[in-house]
Write a protein that binds this DNA or RNA. Sequence first.
DNA 1: AGATCATGCAACGCA
DNA 2: GCGTTGCATGATCTC
Length: 680
Amino acid sequence: MKNMKMHEPDRDLHGLQRLESVGDQDPNFIPVKENVEEEERDLWLDRDPEDLLGVGVDDDSSMFYTDFSTLPDFPSISSSSSSSSSHPPPINEAATAAACRSSSSSSSSSSSSLWTVKSEKSDYHMDATMEEEKEPLLWTEDSMEIPQSLEPQIDVDCINVMQELGDMDLLDTNCMWESNSILFPSEKPEEEEHQEQKKEEEGPQDEQPSEDLGMVFLEWLKSNKESISAEDLRSIKLKKSTIECAAQRLGGGKEGMTQLLKLILQWVQNHHLHKRRMGSHNPQNRFQNPNPNPISLDSHLCFSSSNPWIPHQPFYADQTANVGFPPMMGYMGGGGDPGFANGAGLFCQPDYPMVDTGPTWPPPPALPHPHFSLYNSYRDQHQPQVFGSGRNQYTSGPAQMVQGNGERLVQMGSSATKEARKKRMARQRRFLSHHRQRQQYSSSTAEQLERLASDANCTTSSHDNPVGNWVFWPSSEIDAAAATTTAVVPSDVAVAETAATPSSDQPILQPHHQRQFNSERRQGWKQEKNLKFLLQKVLKQSDVGNLGRIVLPKKEAEMHLPELEARDGISIVMEDIVTSRIWNMRYRFWPNNKSRMYLLENTGDFVRCNGLQEGDFIVIYSDVKCGKYMIRGVKVPQQGSTKMEVKRAGKQQRNLHSTLLSPDGDCGPSSFSPVNETVS
DNA sequence: AGATCATGCAACGCA
DNA sequence: GCGTTGCATGATCTC
């Protein structure tokens, strides 16, 4: 269970602040300019919990949504065997995983730990190598289902948390829980350490009064005595080293331990409720734990040098829910084109039950969080990639979602107002703009991105969807890769507010294509104001064949893509809007008579990954703000896609070309509206 | 008539 | 033998 909830939104946020902040001293962390950090911190502190969770309220529907992209490769929760069938793992997982591993190993050798996810069939494990200790933490996509192969390791390594807690004599907070009595690996500069030591010696001054550990536990027990049994507590196992490291990461000392205890208890509580919920409320019991073995909480206490605290998923989804699943976008049914659910927005997730949260902890004090950048990077990168459904199944606050497959979600308890949303959006824009600048593609050389895109010719960026074969690329890595890649940046992209001129950024389409497109618009496509439409191509058989190349329309290619000097063309990095994957393609041309044929090569994986067939189409955008090329494969219902229709689509596409190029065809609404309006 | 583009197929490289 | 690459050809469209 990736999305283990430990906090309510605001607490999580603060908790994250705290957790992010404790890694200040991490020398491996992404170096960020001082003022930038300051700015980030301000923004961070300034932001609403909903913002920070990537949750907003859609203007039209008052429904919450998250700004994360779809999660196409999210494996089924029910069982590892079924996960592969219902959600086929992404292509070239092994290769990607290998790339990830190699990155990991290379970075770990330099004592920086990179989060990697290995895709092993349908199970997704993460190896997190702690700095210094090189101690692996293992977690699975679904913690309720620890793969057999990993169980022994977990069991052997783990200690019984509650036993541990008992041994530690929770009520005696001066004993084991004193920071002094625990030897944590020192990661801080000496000076800082001295200061902290001094602080501790002086005792708590301005800090909030540190809560008594025993009292914390006692209070918790009181409030949960009816729902949490001793067995629940006993069933939790946590590595001792994890405890220590976690406590250290949480601020160290008593405070750290207190925070950790809270997290553990919250986790216990959530897990317990989750299990109960799964057992009694979910008729399908799809989340029931097939693994009778105790659960390792280690899985959910993830630390690394560069990611002091990466709570996978919980912070991205509904914090109030005990069952957390990756926030997702995409077609949500109800309002859109059903065909779309099978298309680019085909990532309809199964219904994820949402349950109530139990008693909560008061928010910890807000702390600076210089390392929040990673998280922000992840999250913010998703912000502009709102498409498909701009709404999320997951809500913030005391909301509940009711969803069946393809059924409309019902959101209750929405507390956000339009006014609040405006403010949030403004802040998001500010923040995004700032972050984008840092992530911009700049100059070029090939190595790093080649590596990034190696093997599978694809990888995922740091903000990738947190499922499937994803990997947390530290933003430094991304930056480095971007800075040294042959990535081509459209230099002549007109900065146009595409949403303001809807017709100019939309391809002309077949009726079913048009339906798709309209559906996307309804679902939130309109929110992608940073994207400028460059070209669209209805795929032919030869485009989706095993040649792995797509012929591009010549005029658009010449107009919107970089000019090619040599026939070999250039490497061009495309980010898949749907999956956020980075595809390293080659844009080139063939001499043809006295003319040229423009091609996009290395598209095979992209096509397969998106399940594109003849009659589907691709759309290429450029991100106006950061200059990236974005590609999107759009599937259309195949039933109506006869060859004739495909032909007609091709014709219409050509019409579009001429319209676009004609002096009068100023890309204004009039040029397109007739076609756009042909299908409702 | 010229341009565009889908696709067939030969040449080539590799296991 | 198989997969990939690159060119040539022909169908279709536009002017």
